[in-house]
Write a protein that binds this DNA or RNA. Structure first.
Lengths: 333, 333
DNA sequence: TTGAAAGCGCTAACAT
DNA sequence: ATGTTAGCGCTTTCAA
């Protein structure tokens, strides 16, 4: 049978209240009793039940993480950094991959609410503000990652996608490209990056041309399909700004299949700077997101919120950084 | 305030016992009352507290997953498949990356024991049988993944590493290679794969030569270092069997740095068939592990164990499959 | 068919 | 400094 606080109390000849106090370092306990209790706890290998203590209104020390897809290297790295920071702070992470599906998102949230997690990190791409508002109304702490929820007052960590798109495009422009395509994610982040792309274009006196812009899923296969489509068009671009590294790699595969060389015939910029970018062939020029800091930041924000140490909400915006490798090149005459 | 079973009972003019019964579909309840209770539950948007019900001895419906490193694509995919199957079966997954560190492993296990998880999946490379025995003694259900614990009776899902090593090496032998190096993980799995490697060599009348065998960490950087070492040696091998795809990529980078061409000067075989293998340059010949099935299988085993539907323990062994791409080639004369 | 009541293991007033 | 006791929200006999 598992040991309970009663076992310890009996063995140490004290009341359960006393044991509880030494466990939690509350109230005043004589040094001798404290030592005796500690001793007995050790002897019995007693571990207080967190579910019992949670029932009395204390924390469960677990937090729910909703993320699109653990199998995507970017999110895996992000999840890892969140997990690490969480554990440092004494919290366990319950992982939920949502596949960008609203139903899954709602389902997991309601499940984890029943489990009384102390809070949520919403790193899921999709989010109808309704679920966020719902959580907020219930006073359940949340922190939102990588998604700007401008209409709700909530702790947020984002990377400026507009700048990311702008920088990627500007880099291509600097290399002399004039026909620049964009194959972006069919998600909020994709639109925002596309805004940056558009802005850079216009700043350089170039038209935003819809035939050069495609939206699709976050996958190598998706990138390849869209890449084929764009590269086989009558006027093909000399450079493409991809939604993320996965998509960029798909585009490279498409180019290869069409006998086009990267970066000689077409330059490609990725996004996220995952391990894929470093090992792809050629190595990918990509927009790096500081996932390590991002994970740490959201976690810290959330914990502050949980501990009630905060007055208002915070909105942390980090900046992406262009990481130039070999998939982009000055355009040939 | 969060609704409790009392709110529902009051509103529906029944006792909490009745409400409990309709929630759990136990006992006998009149159809009319049941409907009324259900109705009230809906109106109040009542969600039973799982922590309270866990305290009364029922399941927490969460299981702990110990895995070396979520940021490694192989484990990320594995984790994802485990998570999916878990959710299908109604369980949440608490993720813990151990970095192959025994202290972390123990720490997380003891933490999750306090949280009363229903069981553990141990996919962590490291494992002293002691922690497994401990869990077993406490009657806590566990299932072990990708690690053969031959001295303990426990549910296990493994992929035959000996065969994997054998096949990889045989493939290289078939291509005419005679000087075959091995840069393997400094872990149990690495030793086992090396056994397979050795066996293949000897079966072909070749000596097992220690200077051709190196053990190192699971990382691109590690692979690169060891690769440099091995490829700069007096007699360098014409082919290398790598510990996993990460290491293989490191070796390719090392080769490139030395001006050696893959696969013309040296062939490389990876392990795991992660996304990295598909996109690396050149695409990696690698030993594929069926991570999707692996995840599903352990989860199923664990759940059976938790539900007590099983008589004895099971040991499931899956087979790896060589996946030939372009990093291996027949040796030149 | 329904309800009263005794826990589950722990915390936190409130007494002593 | 330590103990008594009333919950926390739910499940489960056992009565009614």
């Amino acid at each position: 049978m598992k040991k309970t606080i009663y076992d310890v109390a009996r063995e140490a000849n004290v009341s359960i209240a006393t044991v509880s106090k030494v466990i939690n370092n509350t109230g005043r306990i004589g040094e001798k009793t404290r030592q005796r209790v500690l001793q007995v706890m050790k002897e019995l290998d007693y571990q207080p039940s967190l579910v019992a203590s949670a029932l009395t209104g204390k924390s469960t020390y677990s937090i729910g993480l909703l993320i699109p897809d653990l199998a995507n290297p970017f999110f895996a790295e992000l999840a890892r950094s969140i997990e690490d920071r969480g554990h440092e702070l004494g919290y366990s992470i319950v992982m939920c991959s949502t596949d960008y599906r609203p139903e899954k998102e709602s389902k997991y949230i309601s499940l984890l609410k029943q489990k009384s997690v102390d809070g949520f990190i919403l790193a899921s791409g999709f989010q109808n503000d309704a679920v966020i508002r719902d959580l907020l109304n219930l006073k359940i702490p949340i922190a939102v990652l990588a998604r700007d929820v401008s209409t709700v007052s909530v702790d947020t960590v984002t990377v400026d996608d507009f700048i990311g798109g702008y920088n990627a495009t500007q880099h291509l422009l600097d290399l002399g490209h004039q026909q620049i395509g964009a194959i972006q994610l069919d998600l909020e982040v994709g639109r925002e990056r596309t805004r940056g792309y558009r802005h850079a274009l216009q700043e350089n006196g170039l038209e935003y041309d819809e035939k050069y812009v495609l939206f699709g899923p976050s996958s190598v296969e998706g990138g390849k399909q869209m890449g084929l489509k764009m590269l086989q068009a009558a006027e093909r671009p000399t450079a493409i700004f991809a939604g993320n590294d996965l998509v960029a790699i798909g585009i490279i595969q498409a180019a290869r299949e069409l006998g086009l060389s990267i970066p000689d015939d077409v330059s490609v910029v990725g996004y996220d700077n995952t391990i894929l970018a470093a090992i792809s062939n050629p190595p990918l020029t990509t927009v790096a997101q500081p996932f390590h800091d991002m994970g740490r930041q959201v976690m810290d924000l959330l914990i502050e919120e949980i501990k009630g140490e905060k007055k208002g909400k915070k909105r942390v915006v980090m900046l992406p950084e262009l990481c130039v490798r070999e998939s982009t090149k000055r355009i040939r005459k």
